[in-house]
């Protein structure tokens, strides 16, 4: 276990190099977010005062996007999948096959380190932005819900990581994985709830989406926080979310072991 603490530690130090990049990313990311929020404000202006869209008041809608930004900062994979693919392509993973280090755990530690630095950096612009919109930011329903929200966020992070990890392992078989990474990203973007809350979709569509892992990559924890998911639905959701985490853990392990057999250490 101690060696992995080491990985996290050096990972954090390495990630410090990217801090300015992270700051740019977080700051520039706010501008389109602001545009989306203005768009929604305009839509609510066109309605009667106090009316709601699929259960979201204006404050609820704005909070939704703010929470998406927060959860995204805490859980999104950004460079990890590219790095894994490059490691495989350039033959860098050979060294991990020789060392008593498990590559998946190693990568997870680096992911955690990366998120740690990203959150520390993004805190400034995102914090200012939330402060600017503080009148619209609703608090969590109650303390137990908030704890469940945090728990779900942790599961989200693991799920995000495992799915990206598996996707990046495609590099064992294909030369250029970036298109696949982008396709997955696009699916996560819409079916995960980045663009809009999934429960404003027609009920049939959102029901179908609930059979995919995507809502559990972002939408589910946010909906707990906002009280859109409540009572026994939270528990049921958490069980499904855990189920997806376990599934993807085994898929990742399986794909890895198949990949290693195929691996020929090009250039390594």
């Amino acid at each position: 276990m101690r060696k992995y603490w080491h990985v996290i530690n050096t990972g954090i130090q390495n990630m410090m190099v990217y801090r300015v990049n992270f700051l740019f990313r977080a700051a520039f990311g706010i501008i389109p977010l602001m545009a989306t929020i203005y768009l929604w404000r305009k839509i609510y202006e066109g309605k009667e005062v106090g009316s709601s869209v699929a259960g979201y008041s204006l404050a609820g809608m704005i909070s939704y996007y703010l929470l998406v930004t927060i959860v995204d900062a805490l859980t999104a994979v950004n460079e990890d999948d590219w790095q894994i693919a490059t490691d495989i392509k350039d033959g860098n993973i050979s060294q991990f096959l020789l060392k008593p280090i498990d590559y998946l755990t190693y990568r997870f530690c680096l992911f955690v380190a990366g998120r740690f630095i990203y959150v520390a950096v993004a805190l400034i612009p995102v914090g200012l932005f939330i402060y600017y919109l503080r009148t619209f930011f609703v608090g969590p329903v109650d303390l137990p819900t908030f704890v469940l929200f945090l728990f779900s966020v942790a599961l989200t992070a693991v799920l995000q990581f495992l799915m990206s990890f598996t996707m990046a392992l495609l590099a064992f078989w294909v030369l250029e994985v970036s298109t696949f990474i982008f396709i997955l990203f696009a699916l996560e973007y819409i079916a995960g709830g980045h663009l809009f809350p999934l429960d404003i979709l027609p009920p049939v569509v959102s029901k179908v989406l609930n059979f995919t892992p995507f809502p559990y990559q972002l939408f589910f924890p946010v909906s707990i926080y906002l009280g859109q998911t409540s009572g026994s639905a939270i528990w049921r959701g958490l069980i499904i979310q855990t189920f997806w985490v376990v599934i993807f853990y085994f898929v990742a392990r399986f794909v890895w072991s198949r990949g290693i057999k195929k691996y020929s250490a090009v250039g390594g």
């Binding site: 768009l39 066109g46 309605k47 663009l195 404003i200 979709l201």
Partner: peptide, 9 residues
């Protein structure tokens, strides 16, 4: 999806 819930922006 947005225009499911409004008819003008």
């Amino acid at each position: 999806v947005i225009y499911l819930h409004t008819d003008h922006i």
